[in-house]
Write a protein that binds this DNA or RNA. Structure first.
Lengths: 136, 136
DNA sequence: TATTAACCTACTAAACAGATGGGAAAATTC
DNA sequence: GAATTTTCCCATCTGTTTAGTAGGTTAATA
């Protein structure tokens, strides 16, 4: 299940994209518009900054800013970063050591295919697509 | 994420399908073959019995038994029952009251589409398919 | 220097995941 | 009818995750 971390991150990015500005947009503003907890959102941002998804600026006049144009952001990347992984079953998370039954597991091929389906789906959608939902 | 409930349930059903018998198969046997906790599996079974996925019989000579042929079991049904839902985001679970922002949510259409994709994927696979993984 | 805002860390309450354990009830066998 | 086997039901438990809250520090600007 996709949690609020990933979903809120997307909403923050969409909010930034829908309110373009030369300046930085403070999280206070975004949180108010989205009806979300500012503090909670602030916790989600660092991973996006470290991975060059957004640019964060401290101090007066600071806030967050997109560093690419909306069509250059792929939803799959945002979700992977904020959720930690897009794997639908724990057997497929790299961190986990391989299950010893994986060799002749009857279900593993299905999970792998579903995982690919999921990745392909979310990697096929950009922020720009989300801004015009009639597109899909 | 699909949890052990759904994954173990599938493994139990596959085990039953791969060891066909006129008689009931005790969970002790299945758990041993699958290397899973008998007690934990026993907890997962009631929902499958109530929904006529398997037939359970108490007492000596009892156990569990498939009531259909493997190709008549759809993976999506098993997962829905054991996981409670296949919805990838909480916004889509029927039990939840509708989000008040759903009318103009930029991401909801994507979650809906992903949900459909997921349902279609798992509803397109049967137990019989899982028994011959080279099929897909 | 005051103000604003990101950034960082710690804490918390509730739910969930993945079990374990005990015992009642049902069915069979001796 | 007693012993045995097995489902079935319920309670408990430990660790982790989720979705925050809260406070303080640092950075930047006015």
């Amino acid at each position: 299940m996709i949690t609020t971390r990933g979903r809120y991150a997307l909403r923050v990015l969409i909010d930034l994209a829908e309110h373009p500005s030369e300046n930085y947009t403070p999280m206070k503003e975004i949180a108010a518009r989205q009806g979300l907890s500012q503090k909670y959102l602030e916790q989600i941002m660092p991973v996006l900054i470290k991975n060059k998804i957004v640019d964060g600026m401290s101090g007066k006049g600071g806030g967050y800013r997109l560093v690419r144009s909306p069509e250059e952001y792929v939803v799959g990347e945002i979700l992977s970063l904020t959720e930690g992984s897009l794997a639908p079953v724990s057997c497929l998370e790299c961190k986990d050591e391989k299950c010893e039954r994986s060799e002749d597991c009857r279900t593993l091929p299905m999970w792998k295919k579903y995982s690919e389906l999921t990745k392909d789906f979310f990697n096929g959608i950009t922020l720009a697509d989300l801004m015009k939902p009639e597109n899909y």
